[in-house]
Amino acid sequence: MKWILGFIFLLVVLQIGALVYLVLQKNKRAKQEENRLTWQLNFRDELYDFATGEQKDMPKIVSGNEDLVELELFAFTNLTATFSHQERIYQYVEAKLLPYYHKQIRHRRIDRRLNAYEAIAQFHLKPVATELHQKLHKSLSPEEEDVIIRTLVSIAPELAIEEAKLKSHISFFGAVLAVGRSKDLTLWIQAFEDLTEPFQMAILQLIYDRDETRYADLARTKTLDANPEIRKRALRALTRVGLEEDWQLYTPYLEDETSWVEQMLALRFLENVTPKDSVDYILPFVGSRSWWVRTAAFDALLACGGLEQLALVAKDHPDRYAKQKATERLAKEMKQHVVI
């Protein structure tokens, strides 16, 4: 009986305690927010004057308002800053916020640390690069590792590449976001063979996204890679940076129904490179069961044979479904909808 009464007492205390906490917190936050907003608006003006060179002195930061400073710096660098403005902002952050970020990256809370890494990357805070690199050798969550590598790409790419040779459990998307921070891929291409699979795939993906024709040779070589994922990414890259003679790299996959990704890529290659007499290669795929292959086939057909070929498929193709799809596509291309 005693322990049940104790439990009831605990429940009541918890309920009252939670209510008091709620009220105090809410009131405290409401009061703080008002003062902080006023300070933030003043700081915004000072920051603008400093960044544009109208004010020589660096704006002062009130302790506890660093998050507001960060918000203003983010907004300024994302929306309005020119190159020279940005340089002044980076100097400002290094002079005024370095100790703050040193503290933040050692914070016990992961959300604080992640915010700090992103700010460090945004404001190019290079002095913390070594410390971040050392952190990667401790036990971290995958999310934190991803963000640190991404940050290192922004402030010390050579250290990030070192890590990219070791980290194989990063997601493809994480690797793309990381490598994508480098405007120039040269350093990554030089280290390509030593990198782990996600980073290799990310580089091939970026060659495609950025239309990097100077790295077409690498893509060509990798179309014969033993790893099917690398091979597919390389074939994908070539659909944009390849030349007409690269068509032979795709032909082995045309007959095999299980290679629908490669088939789709072959069709994308034809769409982008438009070699002569390619319509015959395309026609077998317009009725494919795969939405991806079918869509790519129609795009390729349109690019290589024009509306005329599309009309022929709509009229005469033996596959009823392909005929219907061609009619639909034709209607879309003619910029008018067919009224039943």
Binding site: M1, I4, L5, F7, I8, L11, V12, L14, Q15, A18, L19, Y21, L22, Q25, K26
Partner: peptide, 25 residues
């Protein structure tokens, strides 16, 4: 004992709901 048992059940249920409001805030 009966009353106490009932109270525990009701209070605990309420506490969970209140906890959800706290989480929201």
């Amino acid at each position: 004992f009966g009353v106490v048992l009932l109270t525990v059940a009701l209070l605990y249920g309420s506490l969970l709901s209140a906890g959800a409001v706290l989480l929201e805030e």
